[in-house]
Amino acid sequence: MQRRAVAVYVAVFLVVGGAAGTLVATADTPEVSFEDPDFERSAGETFEHAGQTYSVTEVTEKTESGGHGGGASHFMLGTIKWNVTAEASASWSNGSTVTYDGEEWTVVIEGEDPSEVTLREQIDKTAILQNDSSADNETVTSDGEEYVVVRDENGDKTLVPSDEYFPAPEERTFAEGDSLEYDGNDATIDDVTTSEAVLVWETTENREVELKQGDTVTFGETTYVAHFPDKETLVLSSDQEAYQAQLDQIDTFQEYVTGLRRIAAILTMGALTLIGLAFVPSRY
């Protein structure tokens, strides 16, 4: 009777454990999917959002080795690039020296309510004097006036006012709204005050973002979650609630599978234990 009872219990354990194992083996693991994602692109394809064009430059599987002898991990990575037009500016302070058109100029702003800025050429007086064998290499000041000492063929000296000796500096004047090439950019004189002139121009900035599974990125005012349905495609969806709900469903399924595996293991071990006990000799 004892062995018959054991046989019945073993049979029940094996049937229930086998059913649990069958459920684990035949259950379909849920996966994240979007029926109508906002964007679904492969490497080399583009998409637009709020008038801005974005380019998916790479969708690839990456391998990351584990530290301290750990196993390598594999993950998908998508790269998105785009260009952003931004406004840049520069200021020319009144009286300062600026470089323009490959030369140095003095910034001159005159008047109480100016609308123009003048660039006055800086004359290299030292170089001019050194190239003139009849003139001393340095100017002199007399009664507050600057002069150049010029000698004739007899060595007689003559004081020539600097304004007469040196060439008149070139001047270039720009009004508010005028365009000019500045530092390789098409700039505009945006505003002129008594203290400075402000130049503005547009510049292009290159931006890039790398996304893993579940990462989020915000374009404009919309936040998207990244998903990789395969090794060649990047999906961006603004439905983050649906994505989280599917993750929760997957977690629940994993807990369900783990529970069934434990049941199958416990019942199998129980059956083996009962079989072993059935063959233990009785003392009575």
Rank of each mutant, 00 (worst) to 15 (best):
A264M: 09
L274D: 08
D136M: 08
T29W: 02
S282C: 04
K212W: 06
H227T: 09
N94F: 10
A242V: 07
V117T: 01
G44D: 05
E153R: 05
M1S: 12
G184H: 12
T233G: 03
G177V: 02
F253S: 04
E40K: 15
P169N: 04
V6A: 15
A19W: 05
T141W: 05
D230W: 00
H68T: 12
G67S: 11
L119C: 06
V6N: 13
R4S: 14
D183L: 01
E221G: 07
Q213V: 02
S55I: 06
V200E: 15
W105D: 08
K231H: 06
R120V: 10
T193K: 06
T252Q: 08
T218K: 11
G184E: 10
V24G: 00
G276S: 14
Y284D: 03
E35M: 09
E35L: 10
P167Y: 01
G144L: 09
E138M: 03
Q2A: 07
R4G: 14
V59E: 15
Y182C: 05
L129T: 00
E87N: 13
G17R: 03
L234W: 11
P169L: 01
T60M: 09
T188W: 08
A50S: 07
A187P: 08
V192Q: 00
E196T: 05
E116V: 01
V150M: 07
Q249K: 13
A25H: 11
V8M: 03
V24I: 02
F279M: 01
T216N: 02
Q130D: 08
F279E: 06
A187F: 04
I80D: 07
A27L: 08
Y224V: 02
G44M: 05
E164P: 01
T29Q: 10
F228E: 07
E255D: 09
E221I: 06
S195L: 08
T57W: 09
